[in-house]
Amino acid sequence: MKKVLLIVVIIVVGFFSCRKEESKYPELVLRYADNQSSGYPTVEAAKYLASLIKERTGGRIELRIYPDSVLGSEIDVMKQMVYGGIDMSRFSLGTLSQFFPELWTLQLPYLYSDSEHMWRVLDGEIGDMYLHGMVGKGIVGLAWYDAGARSFYTRTPIANINSLKGLTIRVQENDMMSRTIELLGAKAVQIPYGDVYSALQKLRIDGAENNLPSYVFMDHNQAAPYFYQDEHFRLPEVVMISVDAQKKVAAIDPSYVELFAECARESGLYERKLWLEEEKRAFDEALQSGVTFTVPDEDDLLALRKAMEPLYQELGEREREIVERIGNT
């Protein structure tokens, strides 16, 4: 009898041991793409997002992060997500506006007075309206990430708005950015992000525009040591999930769809904190490397904003109303 009981105990223990071992393996593995490198705020926030998802699904879903554009450029990743080839990523408004034209309004130059103003807008009704409106193209918006303010940097000094005239400036593959540069009297050239350093070195372009962390992270400060801090664009980024991936998540547990959104929003708050830290670090590193910073005075800022009036005049009635609401927020 004792021998039989011992055998039963061994079988039961073995059964539950196997069950415990099986739980170590996720039921679903999703792929998340980013065009930045490890250590960059958006990538570190994505890793934090992955840890939240793993913890809160009890290991049932794993999110694997692929940085350094290993899964393709932003445009390539976006196209793959539409067809379910990649599950999640974060995109700039410049890329997203090609799929969601209504985002054009949020890209207007000099739209916000500062970072705090932008987050009052995006954390409120206007931000929710745009975030929840990004549907119907095979991808869904989950949360906002910070991407700082974009300014100009060049190989030669910029004293004011007149110094930009005649220069060839690299911009994202985005028509709004091209038009902004051209209204300032410069020539806009759309070049992939990864080719900017080479283009600067080979004198194919006179400068580019981006946020300060990207400027330092990609060593552009070594080739273009003059930074004109006009902060013409504040373009937040959006964490997206493909509709196909969302269906797979729901198949495991319908409540996980909202859980993913909650985790994304938490990672967004974490990313903002990382961004502020990275901006300070990038500024210090740029100074140490010999970068010359020029901050436009009030008269120059007025001239810059005045040059953008044609863009604002093209707005429809609804867009004008939104811009007014943003200004009053």
Rank of each mutant, 00 (worst) to 15 (best):
K47C: 00
E321L: 09
W119D: 00
S151N: 08
I11V: 14
D87F: 05
L259F: 02
L167V: 10
I326R: 01
V4M: 09
R150T: 02
T329P: 03
E258V: 10
K24Q: 14
N211W: 03
V140T: 15
S73C: 02
A188M: 02
E237Y: 09
Y228N: 02
P101C: 00
R90T: 13
G59M: 05
P157M: 01
I252E: 06
R272P: 05
T156E: 12
N211S: 02
L142R: 10
R320E: 01
E319Q: 14
R204A: 11
H220F: 01
I139C: 07
D297I: 10
A261I: 11
E314K: 15
L315S: 06
L200V: 07
G138M: 10
M118T: 12
S115L: 12
D128T: 15
G327W: 07
D230G: 00
K247D: 04
V82A: 12
P213S: 06
E102I: 06
I158K: 05
K202L: 12
I161R: 15
G59C: 08
D230A: 14
K273P: 08
N162I: 11
P254E: 03
Y110T: 07
T294D: 06
A186T: 04
S38E: 11
V9K: 09
V8T: 11
R204M: 06
E27M: 13
G207P: 00
L93Q: 00
A186Q: 03
T42Q: 10
L63A: 04
Y228T: 07
D175S: 15
P213W: 01
A159Q: 10
L111E: 01
L203V: 11
L93V: 01
I126E: 02
P236V: 10
Q98A: 11
G136I: 05
K2Q: 10
A147H: 09
E285R: 15
D195P: 13
V189H: 02
E285C: 04
F16V: 04
E324S: 15
S289I: 02
V238K: 06
Y228D: 03
L111I: 00
L52Q: 14
E74C: 06
R281T: 14
L269R: 15
F217V: 13
A307P: 09
G94C: 03
R265Y: 09
I65M: 08
G59R: 10
W144C: 07
W119R: 08
M134P: 04
E266K: 12
V9G: 13
S214F: 07
Q222M: 12
S23R: 15
I126N: 05
A303P: 05
I191C: 06
Y112E: 07
K187V: 13
Y226W: 06
R31P: 03
D206R: 00
Y312V: 10
E27I: 09
E237S: 01
I205H: 08
Y197C: 02
Y32V: 02
Q229N: 14
L111G: 04
L304T: 09
A147E: 08
A245I: 01
P296F: 03
A186I: 10
L108P: 11
H220I: 00
E173S: 12
V323M: 03
